[in-house]
Simulated scan of single mutants.
Amino acid sequence: MDLLALADFVLVARHGGLGKAARAARRPKATLSRRVADLEAALELRLFERGRRDLKLTEEGRALFERAGALLTELEETAAVIASGSERVRGRLRISAPLLFAQMAMGRLAAEFSRRHPEVRLEVTADDRAVDMIEEGYDLVIRVDPAADEALVGRPFLHDRLVIVAATDRPHLEGGPVAAVVRGGDGAQEWTLTASEATMALAVDPVLRLSSLVMIRDAVRAGAGAARLPLSLVSRDIAGGRLVHWGDVPGSEVALWALYPSRRLLNARVSAFLDLLRQSFPQAAPEELAAYLDA
């Protein structure tokens, strides 16, 4: 494959047309058109649908642009670092993180990352939805137990589990339904918990429905009832006596994953942020997140 032709194809695709690409690169439009046609002939694929005024990527063209564009960018960055003799990480890094983790930790992580790598422009978005990394231009996403995705690779960097807590002690475990603070549309009338190696059922009466886990924790602190919450969110309250740990929720273990596009050349900025996550949570335990917030 002609790498120069591939680079010209990426240039045209990135700018959305021959004219814009020619003006941006200050190169003849005819040359770019010929290079793209040569690449299509070599691959025996149509990469663009050609209209009267513009070009539109075919399905095959979009797939090639997503892969080749990322690879060529990494090659350019690597060459620039080698040429400058510098190991400094630079450029823009866009991260999407779930709302709770973003509220709890991303502010401090972002500040530390910025201190270590002042030439990186870091942008963090808090969002619980499954963003499309390629289409929306993210370099790294953090997700809880993500579904398998062939286009992404990654690693878990933090584990957590649900515990049942309340502002009062265990007598509420006996007798009638317990006042419960639940999230959104949770309609459970009974919770299962494990305490002192015994598993039991607990009848609950949802008296409050809140959309945020932080709101739920605050309501439980204020005595509104019991709740199932991540250990990382309430371990400091348990240790400080503000909340009582009634037991664990069986089978509630989750993992936070850092995901990035599957490619041979890992973005240096992504690699640097992954290093920060490993250093911040070396054991990947929920207590580490709580301790990190207290540090």
Rank of each mutant, 00 (worst) to 15 (best):
L4C: 01
A7T: 06
V12S: 07
A13E: 03
R14V: 01
A25E: 14
R26Y: 07
R26E: 14
A30M: 10
S33G: 07
S33C: 05
A42F: 08
A42E: 15
A42K: 11
R46Q: 14
R46D: 11
R46E: 15
E49G: 06
R52P: 07
R52V: 08
R53P: 00
L55D: 08
L57M: 08
E59P: 00
R62K: 14
R62Y: 00
L71K: 06
L71F: 12
L72T: 03
L75E: 12
E77V: 13
A79Y: 06
A80G: 09
S84K: 13
G85L: 11
V89T: 13
G91M: 09
G91R: 06
L93N: 13
R94C: 11
A97V: 15
L99V: 14
G107L: 14
L109Q: 09
F113D: 07
F113R: 09
R115W: 12
E123N: 02
V124I: 14
D127F: 02
D128Q: 01
D132S: 04
I134C: 00
I134T: 05
E135D: 07
E136H: 01
D139S: 15
D139F: 07
V141G: 06
I142E: 04
I142Y: 09
R143C: 02
V144H: 03
D145H: 03
A147S: 07
E150Y: 03
R161M: 07
L162C: 00
I164E: 08
V165D: 12
D169E: 15
R170V: 12
R170C: 01
P171M: 11
P171W: 08
H172G: 15
L173Q: 09
G176K: 11
V178I: 14
A180C: 12
V181T: 13
V181N: 13
V181G: 09
L193H: 04
T194Y: 00
A198C: 00
A198N: 02
T199N: 02
M200T: 13
M200S: 13
A201T: 10
A201Y: 06
D205V: 06
L208W: 02
L208I: 00
L208Y: 05
R209F: 01
L210T: 04
S211W: 02
S212Y: 06
L213E: 15
A219E: 13
A222F: 06
G225T: 00
A227V: 09
A227R: 02
R228G: 13
R228N: 01
R228S: 15
L229R: 10
L229F: 11
L231G: 02
R236E: 09
A239Q: 10
G240T: 06
G241M: 11
D248T: 12
D248I: 03
S252M: 05
S252W: 09
E253G: 14
V254Y: 03
L256F: 15
L259D: 02
S262Q: 10
R263N: 08
L266W: 03
L274S: 04
L274P: 03
Q283A: 15
A284Y: 04
A290Y: 01
A290V: 02
Y292W: 15
L293N: 04
A295F: 08
A295D: 07
